[in-house]
């Protein structure tokens, strides 16, 4: 007697699977790239926050008996001696004009009264607090206002948090849409295979056995589609990094090679989600059939 290897109970290839594969792959691509964008947004926010936290700006109001440049130079000297300050440098008028030129143009700059500023670079590990800087200036008899960028930092933090949540939300929506697509496809597959399911049930297959068949099939399809989507996201990430030079395509979203890690769980998550969706759908439909057949 020959030995026979049993064939798969569900047909291995079905036309409608191609469409489902494409939908799940695209959604997985969007979800993965969304997660990568969330990580990049978070990274950008951290970078900006760190840069702003490492600096403070002091505006000096000169006394009647001294010039603005003199007052700024004196303030810089005093601030440089405060613990937690690495360097303090008075911003010369020429430098201030250079910074304003793109915004105000050449014509009015010479007549414009400009604030006398001191740029203070802080120790990133133990930065001097704004209160300490103000105290040191007051003790030296300087009328000055210290801006430690906390308002900007807070705004940037909120903006980055919003961008991160938006990216995570989009990734979540894409995952939800993938789940819905699987539920729909699974229901359609079950309807299309209604007679086969009926035969399996009549020959003694349990609901769990039938659900396992569909679950395994859709989990595998979603895993492969998820891998395709993840590879697509990695490809786009590579294009953005390689095509964008040192700062990536945009400094606002500094993608990094380490973001590839975000793609690793995509096939597993897609498979898990599809398995769960398929299982619940099949069990529900089988239960409806059972209730019809038993008046239950």
């Amino acid at each position: 007697m020959r030995s026979y290897r049993p064939g798969p109970l569900l047909p291995t290839r079905e036309g409608r699977d191609v469409a489902l594969f494409a939908v799940v792959a695209i959604l997985c691509f969007l979800a993965t790239f969304g997660a990568m964008a969330a990580a990049a947004a978070q990274r950008a926010a951290d970078g900006w926050s760190r840069a702003m936290a490492a600096e403070a700006t002091v505006q000096v109001n000169p006394r009647p008996d001294e010039s603005g440049d003199q007052a700024a130079a004196r303030a810089a000297e005093i601030l440089a001696a405060v613990p937690g300050v690495i360097e303090a440098e008075a911003l010369e008028r020429a430098e201030a004009e250079r910074l304003l030129r793109p915004w105000l143009g050449e014509a009015i700059l010479p007549d414009l009264p400009l604030p006398h500023l001191v740029v203070v670079r802080l120790d990133p590990d133990q930065p001097a607090q704004a209160a300490a800087l103000s105290r040191a200036l007051a003790e030296a008899g300087l009328d000055a206002r210290v801006d430690d960028h906390s308002v900007w930092r807070s705004d940037v933090g909120h903006a980055a948090q919003t961008a991160t949540f938006a990216a995570i939300g989009l990734a979540g929506l894409a995952a939800l849409a993938a789940g819905c697509a699987v539920i729909f496809a699974c229901g359609a597959a079950l309807q299309a295979r209604h007679e086969m399911v009926q035969v399996l049930s009549l020959t003694g297959a349990t609901h769990a056995y039938i659900a396992n068949l569909f679950q395994a099939r859709f989990a595998w399809l979603a895993a492969v589609a998820g891998a395709a989507g993840a590879l697509g996201a990695i490809g786009l990430l590579a294009a953005v990094i390689l095509g964008g030079g040192d700062q990536g395509l945009t400094p606002a979203l500094p993608f990094d090679w380490s973001d590839i890690v975000m793609a690793a769980p995509t096939p597993v998550l897609a498979a898990g989600l599809a398995a769960l969706a398929a299982r619940l759908t099949v069990r529900r439909l089988l239960h409806v059939a059972y209730r019809t057949e038993t008046r239950g």
Partner: peptide, 10 residues
């Protein structure tokens, strides 16, 4: 048959 659990039916 009208009062049978899925497991007993199988």
């Amino acid at each position: 048959t009208t009062r049978i659990s899925p497991a007993d039916r199988t």
